[in-house]
């Protein structure tokens, strides 16, 4: 079997807060192969963004990150020096952020910002970098690409800026690209365009992609693998088709009931909701974090939660199959 490009084991992120520690991410595992798209889904605050920032080594200094293993193509990221991380960032792994309006430096031209990573990482001249920038701007569907290079971010709309961000991330042809809710801040009409563009370019350049989103409709279309996060835990992970067809964790099933799926949701039927709120993660967190909102919760949910599943499809629940069969029987 092919060795994964990115392999993460037992990643834990703790944030010191007034009066204790916020256990924001607790022991998550995942693998990502070259050219594969992994979608991380979950509610706000479930630790999706922190997980991606941890991979990039962009967590702020006050945040504690530990992992048994974080391996990027043979480089141990847990032990990488700042210099090694800098050499990887922008060159072999790149990131696209949620907020295109504030993610570009207002003081520099689009051209300056586009060529920066390439000039930092590769032995190319200004002219070659400019040519590459124009090529990529055209690729992300920006017209009059050459004249855009001398424009400033404030002269561009949100959609254009996010296209610029995508082009910027692609400048060095990274092997891994992490997109953290890249369309949340955009107009609904261009969300689909941007995602499609990102996905197509990822395929074209054979990039592995981590796409963070809470739009399950998007996941259904683009994901090879899905990782469902809840309150800092990876509650279910597996190939997209399996997770969608046989959601095993009660939370995943709850999420899927919340969205209409073409062909699956009956016209006129009510969409589901998950009652309750996400628990506090400050202090000791034990047992299943979802138990306060789960209809199958019992005493054993306070204890250790086993990891179940076979092959690539795994979930954390004390119930066999997360009571899926039971639920199907009464449905």
């Amino acid at each position: 079997m092919e060795k994964p490009l990115l392999s993460v084991r037992n990643l834990t992120i703790d944030i010191p807060v007034g009066g204790g520690t916020l256990h924001a991410v607790r022991g998550i595992d995942f693998d990502l192969n070259r050219g594969e798209t992994l979608c991380i889904v979950g509610e706000s605050g479930s630790g999706k963004s922190l997980t991606s920032l941890a991979v990039m080594g962009l967590l702020s200094k006050t945040i504690r990150r530990t992992a048994d293993r974080m391996d990027f193509d043979g480089t141990d990221l847990t032990r990488a020096t700042p210099r090694t991380m800098r050499a990887l960032r922008g060159a072999r792994m790149a990131m696209i952020f949620q907020e295109p309006m504030t993610s570009l430096n207002p003081a520099y031209t689009i051209g300056d910002q586009l060529t920066e990573a390439l000039l930092l990482h590769k032995p190319v001249g200004r002219e070659a970098a400019r040519a590459r920038a124009i090529e990529l701007l055209e690729k992300v569907g920006i017209t009059a690409a050459e004249s855009r290079l001398s424009q400033y971010p404030h002269q561009l709309s949100g959609g254009l800026r996010q296209r610029v961000m995508i082009a910027m991330a692609l400048m060095c042809e990274p092997e891994l690209i992490i997109a953290d809710e890249p369309t949340t801040a955009l107009d609904v009409t261009i969300q689909a365009q941007i995602l499609r563009l990102l996905y197509d370019l990822g395929r074209e350049m054979n990039m592995a992609m981590i796409l963070i989103t809470h739009d399950l409709g998007v996941v259904a279309r683009v994901a090879d693998k899905v990782a469902v996060m809840y309150a800092g835990e990876l509650v279910e992970t597996g190939p997209a088709a399996e997770v969608f067809n046989m959601p095993s964790h009660p939370y995943t099933r709850g999420l899927l009931r919340c969205i209409p799926l073409p062909g699956k949701t009956e016209r006129g039927s009510k969409l589901g909701t998950i009652p309750g709120i996400v628990p506090s993660l400050v202090g000791d967190v034990q047992g299943c974090a979802f138990r306060t909102r789960c209809s199958y919760a019992e005493a054993a949910c306070h204890g250790d939660i086993p990891r179940q599943g076979s092959g690539g499809h795994a979930f954390r629940c004390i119930h066999e199959d997360g009571n899926r069969h039971f639920e199907e029987a009464i449905a």
Binding site: R86, A87, R89, M95, M168
Partner: peptide, 13 residues
């Protein structure tokens, strides 16, 4: 700010 994070993500020293 966000654009400093972007610069870090590019691997700028």
């Amino acid at each position: 700010s966000d654009y400093i994070r972007t610069a870090r993500a590019k691997g700028a020293p």
